[in-house]
């Protein structure tokens, strides 16, 4: 996994609560068997005026000029500012893949859906929970100031605003460590292979019915 230490970048304000995974990446793009290439279809139904298909030539599609991502002032944005319950809906990891592929490294919101939050950490994308008051200020400042950018320091657990004021955030210590060091979860778990085997043997003895094969 890619390491995460400090990210500095332009902020995109997506002023809408309950942004679901269909909003982030519509299902027709889930047919891919790859992990990459989803960025051009991030927010597809809002970003373009027509309906996109996996084989569409996206450079020829009409853009929705009203959608915030298409406004020139946000070109190159890396930090997504969102509202409550961001990422609700399906478990599709294509949602963080699309955000990541587009170039986002951080999502800041007052709350996230559980599975989405988890999927972000697995892909080197940092979700940050910030209280409503700070979120409202960030929305206001981002919208009011062109080129508004933030610096996110994971080791320090801080978001620094252009005026140098700081918002501190919480992050699970295990996940923080994995992100900072780019650790692979599977590798980590397999270090405990003996413990897993021992557990499995005991469990099999205690509850053999979970290990029975089907009579099919």
């Amino acid at each position: 996994m890619r390491k995460f230490s400090v990210e500095q970048g332009l902020v995109l304000p997506l002023d809408r609560a309950n942004v679901d995974t269909d909003f982030i990446i519509p299902k027709q793009f889930l047919k891919s068997i790859k992990r990459t290439g989803f960025g051009v279809n991030l927010f597809d139904e809002h970003r373009y005026l027509d309906k996109g298909e996996p084989d569409s030539d996206n450079s020829k599609r009409p853009l929705n000029p009203d959608f915030v991502l298409n406004q020139p002032r946000y070109k190159g944005c890396k930090i997504l500012l969102a509202r409550d319950n961001f990422g609700c809906g399906s478990s599709r990891e294509h949602a963080p893949w699309a955000l990541d592929d587009y170039g986002f490294r951080v999502v800041i919101a007052p709350s996230f859906a559980d599975i989405f939050l988890n999927n972000c950490f697995k892909n080197g994308l940092l979700p940050i929970v910030v209280n409503q008051e700070n979120i409202s200020e960030l929305f206001r400042d981002t919208q009011a100031n062109e080129g508004y950018s933030l610096t996110v320091d994971l080791a320090e657990q801080t978001v620094t605003r252009p005026d140098d004021s700081v918002i501190a955030f919480e992050v699970d210590s295990f996940r923080k460590n994995c992100l900072l060091n780019g650790l692979d979860d599977i590798g980590l778990t397999l270090e405990e292979a003996d413990t897993i085997k021992a557990f499995e043997d005991k469990w099999r003895q205690k509850s053999p019915w979970y290990f029975a094969n089907a009579s099919v």
Partner: peptide
């Protein structure tokens, strides 16, 4: 419960899921 694709791979490889109790 539902999991993402990285976790699908994790479960395939380790028969375990890394989680905090809800």
């Amino acid at each position: 419960h539902g999991i993402g694709t990285s976790e699908v791979e994790h479960v395939l490889a380790t028969q375990c899921l890394m989680q905090k109790k809800m």
